[in-house]
Design a protein around this nucleic acid. Structure first.
Lengths: 204, 204, 204, 204
DNA sequence: TATGAATGAGGCTTCATTCAT
DNA sequence: TATGAATGAAGCCTCATTCAT
């Protein structure tokens, strides 16, 4: 399930993520990605069987990036509040670090899932992506649940609450632009601001 | 600037919004929209010069729907907190009412603006859409600003805060599905929950 | 056969000729012509049953313009040389006067006659146009023939000669641009130069 | 600037020239050309980015065909009259040899340059075509100029004269049909007749 | 592994034409 | 007479994908 990703494959994924981000997952063509790699599309088709598979691989990697970063800071001995705060910061920082990947996630997140039933293989990949995304969200849902149970957080519909929370934490995806001078500081500020907002929004 | 929209045009916009929501703005073809109207694409092109223009018209309408609903409840005599609460509720309820239109907004919100500079006319339309969206966001930014000024809200980067706020309020766009039994009640719950979360996230 | 042309019809023909000249007979749409008339295409379809018919009407008029101008100067009592010289001058001047119409002629003159058999009616119109054009060319062929017979002109293949002659006389269609200051003088110069060239090319 | 043309590309150009000649550059569709090649339009688009580019390539080749044929016979030691006579013959023979290409030239020569500014790339190609055509015409203009200077040719407006000359030499494009029995002889006759007419038209 | 040629399906758009008013 | 809405048939072009090398 977590097969290693070769360097060539990784390079392709980076280029794909970048193109998907810049042009949109639909508008970006395999040729665009190949061009941004300085090669031809044959190279891509040698590593990924279809555009859908490539897209799924990018999304999977996005989920795994944040999953790895967030799980590393989870400490069940902390209060839900404290734990969630660290998770939120870690999430935002990781999103900012691997921004192209997460932009792609959102583009697909809209619920608009193409039209055709595609091929069976693609179906499976999409299912896997959704599964890992859900699994990741569960990390947050678990803490929220704990916090609601012990009275720290306001008792509200769990799903609505978690969805709002994740959106808040993902909001930089919509507007963040790298390339400013004090990038590291700014990222820290954004992460802190959003983590605090997120936590505040939950408190009873 | 606010030219009337004929019945035929309005019907087309509804169908377009629905298709864009269901299939995604990129995947939905003009033929899909025509089919869902029971007519041919000629009809659409008689009223809208291009797919881009149609998309922009949908987005513009989305912005105006929420603008109208929210401005109606703004009352400057209220505290920023109270005012924003009413605005948040109104926003969520309106989004749920005209959901297809707002799904489209988000799809475009990602920042991935096609590739070619397209035609000049499209550029202008996109600019207008962005302008009206910004104008709408300003309604919220103004209250947040007031609240930060009088100490009710925590002092944070204004843009980051407002972006997070709007995302929270728009979150149902990602998951809401109509068609359940107690739709009216559920919508009210969602609106209340999100409004409270949003307000809580701001408080000092 | 020479039914009168109403003022409205004539205005449409002028606009059509102008658009055909500017944009090309294929590229110019009925809407373009209507727009240049300041009306909608309904008006055009009230007077002409199809685009092909409109095009044919323009071509017919072109042929008749030159036919009228040239026949007026034919005088059988003159030598073929003198007669042809006057005809050539008259032709060039008339072409310059009604330039848009004659540009259209050439566009169609290429021999590339679309693909579909079109409708039967169009076929008939095209045949009529060709007939009148041939009839017009005969005016020149007759003089060339007389001149070859009496030894004034070099004995050459008649068809090749006449075709070359007409092309020389029509050459301004390819490059003439109105809008200069001394338009009347320049037109006279062009007519004289070309008439002399044409005559010289024939002489034994 | 004179990049080699691959066999596949050359085959496409021939088919395109033929279709453009037969159906007209506007009426001929890319599908028509592909069908005449026995392949799909994908093949064409793999080699030429657009129909406009394909058309321009055909026109460029036409100009280069005649340029090559004519320059080979230019001999500055001859009198302008003798030199021009050889050039004229060579031009006509080459035009008859590669007739489809030259029919296309004339179709575009009309001055009716579409409507939209098209894409920037097309603009550049059109400019290049015009430049090479002008360069070719200069070969003739130079001799005419020499002949006027030394009194062999009648002193007339140079541009008008050269334009008329070229039209005379190009006239077979309008009426020549291959497929007769004595093709070689007939071509020679046509070339001689037109060359003589052309020269005669210039003489003082 | 990677390239370049080619395919085929599908999407956007234009436009001549018809029709109700 | 003239308009505005609508149709339907093409046409241009894009692009994911396959295949021979």
């Amino acid at each position: 399930m977590l097969e290693q990703i070769s360097a060539s494959k990784s390079e392709i994924l980076d280029a794909a993520a970048h193109c998907f981000m810049t042009l949109g997952a639909d508008a970006a063509s395999i040729d665009d990605i190949a061009a941004s790699l300085g090669s031809t599309k044959g190279r891509i088709y040698h590593h990924f069987p279809s555009k859908g598979a490539l897209l799924a691989a990018v999304q999977l990697r996005a989920a795994r990036f944040t999953y790895g970063a967030v799980q590393a800071v989870i400490d069940e001995r902390l209060t839900p509040e404290a734990c969630l705060h660290k998770m939120a910061q870690a999430h935002v920082l990781e999103v900012l670090r691997s921004l192209p990947y997460h932009k792609v996630i959102l583009q697909t997140f809209t619920g608009a899932r193409g039209k055709s039933p595609s091929k069976a293989a693609e179906e499976g990949l999409q299912a896997q992506v959704r599964a890992e995304q859900r699994q990741y969200t569960e990390l947050f849902a678990a803490q929220v649940s704990r916090g609601m149970a012990n009275g720290t957080f306001a008792p509200r519909t769990l799903r609505v609450t978690v969805a709002g929370l994740m959106l808040t934490l993902n909001s930089p995806v919509f507007w963040y632009q790298s390339g400013r001078g004090d990038e590291q500081n700014f990222r820290k500020t954004v992460a802190d601001d959003l983590a605090e907002m997120a936590l505040a929004s939950l408190r009873a």
